[in-house]
Design a protein around this nucleic acid. Sequence first.
DNA 1: AACCTGACTTCGG
DNA 2: TCCGAAGCCAGGT
Length: 112
Amino acid sequence: MTSTFHQRAVAVIKRIPKGRVATYGQVAAMAGNPRAARQITRVLNSSSKKERLPWQRVINREGRISLRPGEGYEQQKGMLLDEGVRFDRDDRIDLARFGWKPRVRGTTGSCR
DNA sequence: AACCTGACTTCGG
DNA sequence: TCCGAAGCCAGGT
């Protein structure tokens, strides 16, 4: 495997469909390490500048933007809104609704 | 070359 | 149920 975690993570991020969002942990898990969520930040910082990754579709597990106002928060929120993602009054995204689900499960999904 | 930090998550007490 | 600590990998200093 010439591909590193970084490469795999990039591939996963590229697969996030428009109008949907994924959490760091989710991406990390799909890339092979459920606990490598932190590394996703590095991937985004690095690759988003080199490649055009949908970094805006990656958010934290609370369904919120981890960036702080002035650090790209507004930009990310703007792009997501443009894709049709809705934020509630707490600036949170309903992951049950906009969360990326690679495998379609029952909508009743209260699995987790 | 070594140490530190980072847009987080999960486990344990 | 809430809080603290560990984990993960790579790039930057």
